[in-house]
Amino acid sequence: MLDVRDVTLRFGEKQILDRCTIQLEEGERLALMGPSGCGKTTLLRIALSLQKPDSGSVICTASRTAAVFQEPRLLPWCTAAENINLVLSDRADTMPEAISWLGRLELLEARDLLPAKLSGGMQQRLSLARALAVKPQLLVLDEPFKAMDEALHGRILRLTSEAAKNAAILLATHSEEEARALGCRILRYRDGRFV
């Protein structure tokens, strides 16, 4: 489903990725771990075709892709419910579904609020709700749980794992516990590659 092959990327003098390869089959779950700035986010962006590598290839055959970025990337002029409905159909008939996702992520009280009125953790949950709502074949998660408070963390992790049970997941994280909770095979950064 996702084939990132021999990807190389430099930022100026610094070699970020060096002939890095990752492959993801349907329903497979991979976690990329490594120190900050090692290239986890960059590799996710390359996998999503948001960034071109200096060399190498990316083939993604997933029909529905969703991503939770480090920043929530919500439309500031749309309410919480509208932000989810945007990726469904943006019509009134899918609004109940959007609202049900808000409920599952414990955000029901925020349905008519603009993102600016939500806390950082709530914005991140909203971003996660939007990603899960499209029932993706490929779900890309870039440290999606870091702004969430302790009490919610476990519940949201379980919910994500359950709601995306048929999705292939590519996760970037610093937490081995998160990777394990999502059932991910862990790849660690070493000399420009994840092995």
Binding site: L48, S49, L50, R64, T65, A66, A67, F69, E71, R73, L75, C78, L86, V87, D90, V134, V140
Partner: peptide
């Protein structure tokens, strides 16, 4: 640009991206 990337990842139809972003 982050919202444009969002539209690309979720493959929003052009008209919807035009109207909403």
């Amino acid at each position: 640009p982050q919202l444009l990337e969002l539209a690309a990842v979720y493959r929003l139809p052009k008209l919807r991206a035009l109207r909403r972003i």
